[in-house]
Computed example of a mutant assay.
Amino acid sequence: MSAPIARRLVPGRGAALGHAALTGALLVLVADFAAQHALPSVQLPVGVVTSLIGAPYLLLLLARANRLGGGG
């Protein structure tokens, strides 16, 4: 999900591989921090927190693409 997020954050058209990589690293870093500190007595796996962040955003992108007729 880092590539669509990076495309929205960085203006312009072009290769956004570096921006997507930095956005992905930041997402994993935030998810790791949230997984360690969200609940005081439990450490959640990073994948669970990452999926909680990414799944709603993916569904939003799919719904938007389907509404605009580009859903494939």
Rank of each mutant, 00 (worst) to 15 (best):
V48H: 06
V30K: 03
R13W: 14
L58I: 03
A6F: 10
A15F: 12
G18N: 09
L62M: 13
R13Y: 14
D32H: 06
L58F: 07
R67W: 08
Y57G: 02
A3G: 03
H37V: 01
L9D: 04
G24W: 15
I5S: 07
L9K: 11
H19P: 02
A16T: 04
A35C: 01
M1R: 00
L17H: 12
A34G: 09
A63F: 06
M1I: 12
A6T: 06
L58D: 07
G70H: 14
A65L: 13
G54H: 04
L61N: 09
T23K: 05
V48K: 03
G18A: 08
L26S: 11
I53H: 06
A15C: 11
S51F: 09
L17S: 15
D32E: 02
L27K: 14
G18R: 08
G71E: 12
S2R: 05
L52W: 08
Q43I: 13
L9N: 07
H19C: 07
G24F: 14
V42D: 02
S51T: 07
Q43M: 08
I5F: 00
T50N: 01
V28Y: 04
A3H: 06
I5D: 04
A63L: 14
L22Y: 11
S2V: 09
A38R: 05
A6Q: 10
H19K: 04
L62G: 12
T23E: 13
M1H: 10
A15L: 14
V49E: 02
I5P: 04
L59Y: 13
A65H: 11
L52N: 03
Q36G: 08
A65R: 09
L9W: 10
T23I: 08
A38M: 13
V28Q: 05
A20D: 06
V49R: 01
R8W: 03
G69Q: 07
V42L: 11
L68W: 05
A3R: 08
L68P: 02
V30I: 08
R67S: 03
A55P: 00
L9Y: 08
P56L: 03
G71I: 07
A20M: 00
R64D: 13
I53V: 15
A38N: 00
R8L: 15
T50V: 07
A31F: 00
L17I: 05
I53D: 09
A16W: 06
A21L: 14
R8G: 14
P11N: 02
A65M: 08
A65Y: 09
Y57M: 09
V49S: 00
A65V: 01
D32T: 01
A31C: 15
G70S: 10
L59V: 04
D32A: 12
L59I: 10
R7V: 07
L39N: 00
G12F: 04
P45K: 00
R67V: 05
L22D: 13
G24L: 11
R13H: 15
S51D: 13
A6S: 12
S2K: 05
A21H: 11
